[in-house]
Design a protein around this nucleic acid. Structure first.
Lengths: 132, 132
DNA sequence: GTAACTCAGTCTCAGATAGAGACTTAATGA
DNA sequence: TCATTAAGTCTCTATCTGAGACTGAGTTAC
C-alpha cells in the first residue's frame, strides 16, 4: 500500500476526533519538535552528550535564548536529559534520553528523504523564482 | 547500527560543510516544511485533491492567510500542485505531486512514532508541570 | 427583486514570537 | 589586572502569525 494512502487514512481518523492539538499526536508533538531548531539539536545530540556552549558552537546561528528554550522544551517532552553539575563555572550537559534516541529512526528517514530530493526542490524553487 | 549513530554521523558531515541553510538539506528543506501547518496539509492532501475552502474546513484553526502562504510554499517546493479553473466563482484545486507523495513515506514514519510515544510525552510533560 | 452566501483569496492591524546582544557570578589564565 | 569562560537571563527590536473585514461576480433563498 502506498504510504500516502495510509497517511490519508490517518488524517481522516484525526478528523473524526476533531483534530484537537491536545489529543492529536501529530499536532501535539510534531508542532513542537518540528520547528527550526529541535530536529537539528536532536541530530547534534545524536553524536553524543554535549554541553550548552558546545551546542552553541556547533550551531552558531541559534541564539542562546532559542537554544535554552528549545532544550527546555525537549527536556519537558522527555527527549533530552539535562544534567547540571553544581560548580563554578556552571557545567550543564545535555544528552538524548532513550525516548529521544528512539526518535532518531523516523528522523533519519526524513533526513534521507531531504538529502535525496533536495536537488529537485532547489530546481523547482529556482523555476518558481524565475517565473515570478 | 543504531539510527541515532547514523544521524550523528550525518550531522558531523554537515558540520564540515558549515551547516549553510542554502546547501544543507535538513536546514534548507525541513526548516520550511517542518512548520505547524505544512505536514498537516500534506496529510490532508494525501487523502486526495482538495479545493481551498475544503482544506480550510478540514483544518478550521488555520487562518486563510497561513493556508494560502503554506500552500504557495509547498507549491514552490514542488510538493503540491495548484490547479486553477478560470471560472466564476473561482475554482482552485490542490493536490500532491509525485514528489509530495514520495514524502508520505518518511512522514508516515514520523506520524507513527508520534502516535506510539505521545502518551509517554504527555506523561513527562505533566510531571514537568507539577515540578514547576 | 433583493439580501445573503460562495468561491479563493488579499489587506490591515494587533499580538505573539524570534533574534541580537548586553549583563550576571565566580574562577581561571596571561 | 584584565580578559575569558561557564550557562544562562534580560531587554529591545524585528519578524511572523492570526483575526477578521473586504473583493467581485454568480447562485440560491425568500
Amino acid at each position: 500500500m502506498d504510504a500516502s494512502v495510509a497517511l490519508g487514512a490517518k488524517f481522516e481518523l484525526w478528523q473524526t476526533a476533531g483534530l484537537d492539538p491536545d489529543r492529536c499526536p501529530v499536532r501535539g508533538l510534531l508542532d513542537q519538535i518540528g520547528d527550526r531548531w529541535s530536529t537539528l539539536l536532536i541530530c547534534a545530540l545524536a553524536v553524543g552528550p554535549r554541553r550548552f556552549s558546545a551546542l552553541h558552537r556547533l550551531i552558531p546561528d541559534i541564539s542562546k535564548r532559542m537554544l535554552t528554550q528549545t532544550l527546555r522544551t525537549l527536556e519537558a517532552d522527555g527527549l533530552v536529559h539535562r544534567d547540571v553539575q553544581p560548580a563554578v563555572p556552571p557545567s550543564v550537559t545535555y544528552s538524548l534520553t532513550p525516548l529521544g534516541r528512539s526518535f532518531a529512526g523516523p528522523l533519519l528517514g526524513l533526513v534521507e528523504w531531504a538529502e535525496t530530493h533536495f536537488p529537485a526542490v532547489l530546481q523547482t524553487r529556482a523555476q518558481t523564482k524565475r517565473a515570478a
